[in-house]
Design a protein around this nucleic acid. Structure first.
Lengths: 338, 338
DNA sequence: GAAAATATTGTAAGCGTTTGCACACCCTTG
DNA sequence: CAAGGGTGTGCAAACGCTTACAATATTTTC
């Protein structure tokens, strides 16, 4: 592996017989260069195969054209779809993406943010189930713009892109209630997390109240984070007496769905289930999971677009963007006639 | 967002009353520093909240402690699990990871590699279904080590980590044949890709030949890349007369499984299916998909470990690493008694 | 106790760019 | 034709760090 010495801006300047500055100008699209010299420079660049060294550039200009993405887990379909949206528009704006997995651990989130600061990223997209105080502090002191994607800041101080979780949860809970279910269970992750308690559960609760039902914690199930932990919770939800189930995550929903069916339940005859993320899981399951429709790709894409504005010092017209969600009726709910 | 002026190495040198070099030494763990001065420097660093600027460091040292990962799609469970392995050991060695999605497009792969070169990454992990000539050339000329993860180089010139696809395919095909199937179908992606034709199909073919069967292209199905395209192919495999099916990818397998069942087939009574990646899809499906067991996380982790060696100029003991695979018997195959 | 070794620290030259400023040059104007 | 006004270009100073090499301290050695 011979590391062939890359041509530098100096080499092309020499070859053409101009100064570094001129070469730099044509490379950066500065217009104050005579057309003829520009051509000569371009030719030399082509001939030498010159590619500007992004590190040197970053040092001199204090812009790295790199952004950081901190996310819980690449392996999680919900987040990876957001990431795809982020990545695509990042590329569109010629940013590279440094990703870090945190497993939702605040300590690692803080480390990731600080590390990204060290690497002089121009901005950061943050995804996570909860905005820990330590993380918040790290974000505030990092010195570059940060936008949240699919992640809430209850204080509303940070730029963010989300759907209206309260409304979405309210909607699907209401539908189940309208379908006549006496008891609707809700399955969430950590209840300490604002997104679960203050948003999702709040929407669920409001629906219950509007329908004149009491909120009974016996129908609240938490700590379901993935397929395995969903399987742990599933027996309890099956025994709970609830016949309608709203779930905050697809991997969890498919776990519960599978458990119920494996234990003789007919879906949607015995239980109606609605999930929330509309990932591939909700399509490959049998029956297919009815779900809140989230514009996941767009959440990421819009968040990244906002970040580009922030990085260009353009004011945001809206700090907390709420993208529209839908309801996708598939096979774990009974047909409704509105 | 006030960008607070970060302390530089110069600031801490001043504060302590030593030279830059000394500070640099303690930051970099150089041992030739008197314990007492080291302490003073450390104290100053702490007090000023000094964090070395990685960009400047990269320029001076020509090491960025950043690697590039080029992959088809973060959203693909197989690749994202490899990436998780990569990321974890990268972190372990204090590398950051720059990821690029290519959608398996050689043009974008080449662009990604060149772009990473520009960013002065210390090394690259490449994942893709096919090693296009253009990509190969880009890899050869990029000037930093590249290792393939879950991706084959038929020429065997590049460091790589894989399972033995030929053996794996041979094994599952044989099992199906042993179970008495007269016709075993094989479902692949692009047949032009070496990994499909020269590896997977070769293993399939050898199994057939060993069992005295003719290889009949009527049982070869290609161009199935994801759930949707799997659904497109599924009717043909159902009609083909094959009763055993080996599939190269889980998302494709679950598509075929679902189609067959949706059209009245009993699995595994009417059809036995074996898939290849052992992702979450093979567990959430009903019945659960029997699969080749691939150490996906490890493939990524080992590839990254190899890359660290290469970056440290340590010779590899083995260029093309083959990790062991297993067979995971689940519910789309009938019980076997070996 | 002085020379020789060794340990510690400082000097300064890069690393490959960007960019503010100054300098030429070439047209216009009046 | 001198002054004014662009254009086009070059100079040189950063950017924040690493790292030979040189210089100075501190120990050892006999």
């Amino acid at each position: 592996m011979i590391k062939k010495q890359n041509a530098t801006i100096y080499d092309v300047a020499n070859k053409v017989g101009v100064s570094l500055a001129t070469v730099s100008r044509v490379v950066n699209g500065n217009t104050n260069v005579r057309a003829s010299t520009k051509e000569k420079v371009l030719a030399a660049i082509d001939e030498l195969g010159y590619q500007p060294n992004a590190v040197a550039r970053g040092l001199a200009s204090k812009k790295t054209t790199t952004i950081g993405v901190v996310m819980p887990d690449v392996t999680n379909l919900y987040y990876s779809e957001l990431t795809r949206g982020i990545d695509d528009v990042a590329n569109m704006y010629h940013y590279d993406v440094l990703v870090t997995n945190t497993d939702d651990d605040p300590v690692r989130e803080v480390m990731a943010i600080n590390n990204l600061a060290t690497k002089q990223v121009d901005g950061i997209i943050f995804m996570g189930n909860e905005l820990d105080q330590r993380v918040l502090k790290a974000i505030e002191s990092v010195g570059v713009p940060v936008v949240l994607a699919g992640s809430v800041d209850p204080a509303g101080q940070l730029p963010s892109v989300n759907i209206d979780y309260v409304a979405a949860m309210h909607q699907i809970t209401s539908q189940l209630l309208d379908n006549g279910h006496e008891h609707v269970a809700v399955v969430l992750g950590d209840f300490e997390h604002a997104i679960n308690q203050e948003y999702r559960f709040a929407g669920y609760k409001r629906a219950l109240e509007e329908h004149g039902h009491e909120v009974n914690r016996d129908y609240l199930f938490t700590k379901a984070h993935n397929y395995q932990t969903a399987l742990d919770v599933a027996p309890d939800v099956m025994k709970s007496g609830a016949t309608g189930i709203v779930v905050y995550d697809d991997e969890v929903a498919i776990g519960i769905l599978n458990y119920l069916q494996d234990h003789g339940a007919k879906i949607p005859a015995d239980f109606e289930i609605v999930t929330s993320n509309d990932t591939n899981y909700s399509i490959v399951s049998r029956p297919q999971l009815s779900s809140i429709g989230q514009p996941k790709y767009d959440i990421g894409a819009v968040a990244m677009r906002m970040l580009t504005k922030l990085m260009d010092n353009i004011a945001l017209t809206e700090l907390a963007v709420t993208l529209p969600h839908t309801f996708i009726e598939r096979q774990t709910t009974r047909k409704r006639q509105d």
